[in-house]
Design a protein around this nucleic acid. Structure first.
Lengths: 308, 308
DNA sequence: CCTCGCGATGTAAACGTTATTATCGTAGCG
DNA sequence: CGCTACGATAATAACGTTTACATCGCGAGG
């Protein structure tokens, strides 16, 4: 096409304020230019950051992003994915609550990327983005160990949770490989501030000098409850959270937390998905990308009492 | 249509797993079944809750919701609204960052609902949902007054912010109408935790016994900074936040905060918009709905020292 | 027996874009 | 001068749904 013809067309476009009709275009091309991101809870700071990254990335690449909040319900998730099927070019499932079989069924024939989920069991061939939670657990323990802590408690999250089991693994491994560390595992608690409050007593039962919480919200719950009974952090006890969400910056003291860059996490998922979409042929090699979390030391960890 | 014919059709639908193609439907009907919600920042707990409500409501009414994060940039906002124009049936602008003129231009000919914005100046005819911020400010002051506080500081947010000016108005009115209250207004600070930290010193300058913060995040920043210098809340000083977001539950002590039910806020906006959409004719009466905020007393406020 | 009415069934056009194929004009080249 | 090649211009069909209108079959009522 010649230069001046293009210019003439573009001039007309501006002249008439012409905007292509997406519906017609989608109909004809069989592509909608929209991808979906499904999360269990938009309000959760973890997913909020994830969404933020995904949004930025898809926007930059000219795709629309529609975010679905399943309110933690597997049924809603399945339903929404089914409903979206024809309206999107691909879908990202973050921390899917669907059991393997239903997950496989839900995404069958759909271009899809899984976040925080190992599809191996599910018989799904899909790219994956995960965080090396074991490494994170390991880092947390080693950090505390380095400060002199030997009695470390872990306040666990939901028993079935993928992250929970991985984090626990990493923590156990680190504790086992370090000299003289006693690991005190404390039950299973809801992954929110109330869970943390509920765990506050039990976490102290075996007199740890440091506590690792399943996530930042649990850590904040512990902090709040301890503060009421006069326990000071980090003077009396050290505390480490997981996920490194923005709430870690809000507490007093600021929370030491280990987590990956969640925005980058979301961006990566989008990139992987668009890559899949743009390569027309169905690729059978499904890349598994793993992000390494980083321990961010803030003010909630210090040497234990005896070592001051 | 006869009963059994309907059944036969529905049977076939299930048989063939028929799903109508939304693109074709949109093209023919000129309706997409999708509405947009534009917010300045998805990560902000305030908007997160708003989105959650809007999502639930639109889902319940069979509409898709696409959420746009403008990352606080007016240009992005204008751009996105323009791009969405043909793809949606209506749009909700929450806390638009666009100046009146550009706002009017952006939504011209678009079914639109404004959240936290008075369109009077903008020359836009659109339904509005706002919160009675003056009443909120009033409540905060009266609550503190009732506890015995007479020296009350207000840590203000962005000077140009609509909420800021309304909250301040309410606070001033209440302070003026109550016997012996000294209102100490402290500058303009960023509406986040860092803003609060920055304000921590200045807020104490005139020896108030209670502080009202522009919002919960600012309050948490104050709390964190004060805690570092050994100031205790509420023993040494009382603290009230605004918006009543979920972070008010996370702090220690839990934050007394005044705000409306944000989910209901989002739901209401969606309902208003869908009402507009479903009534085909352009209605010229644009309803202005005002939500009344509620003061939620938690643990950050108590009688001042002298009165114990 | 004819007609009326209602529901089932059929036909066709239209929504706006895109992909394909055809046609035309012109400039370049032998 | 004729042929090729290429870009501009035109014409068409197709995507899947919805809306409107026409037709058909059948039972009820005159």
């Amino acid at each position: 096409m010649a230069e001046d013809t293009r210019d003439r067309v573009l001039a007309a476009v501006r002249e008439l304020d012409y905007r292509p009709n997406r519906a017609a275009s989608s109909l004809r091309r069989g592509r909608t230019g929209v991808i979906a991101l499904v999360v269990p809870d938009i309000e959760n700071p973890y997913f909020a950051s994830l969404i933020k990254g995904a949004q930025a990335s898809s926007r930059a690449r000219g795709y629309g992003l529609v975010v679905i909040d399943t309110t933690e319900q597997a049924d809603v998730e399945a339903e929404e994915v089914a409903a979206l099927r024809s309206q999107i070019d691909g879908i990202i499932l973050a921390s899917s609550r669907l059991p393997d079989a239903r997950l496989a069924e839900a995404v069958a024939g759909l271009r899809c990327v899984l976040i925080n989920r190992d599809p191996a069991g599910a018989g799904v061939v899909a790219p994956t983005v995960t965080i090396d939670e074991r490494s994170g657990g390991n880092d947390a323990v080693r950090h505390l160990y380095g400060q002199g802590h030997r009695r470390i408690a872990y306040v666990g999250g939901p028993a079935r949770s993928w992250s929970q089991s991985r984090r626990l693994e990493g923590i156990r491994n680190a504790a086992a490989s370090l000299e003289g560390v006693a690991l005190l595992e404390v039950g299973s608690f809801a992954p929110d501030a109330d869970g943390g409050r509920a765990a506050a007593e039990l976490a102290l039962a075996d007199r740890p000098t440091a506590v690792i919480a399943y996530n930042d919200l649990v850590a904040l719950g512990l902090l709040a409850q301890w503060s009421e009974r006069g326990l000071r952090v980090p003077e009396d006890i050290s505390l480490v959270g997981f996920d490194n969400t923005f709430v870690a910056e809000l507490s007093s003291p600021r929370l030491t937390s280990v987590g990956a860059d969640l925005r980058a996490f979301g961006e990566l998922a989008v990139e992987l998905l668009l890559e899949r979409i743009d390569s027309r042929e169905t690729v059978d090699a499904a890349p598994h990308r793993v992000l390494t979390p980083r321990l961010v030391v803030r003010d909630s960890t210090a040497a234990p009492r005896g070592l001051h």
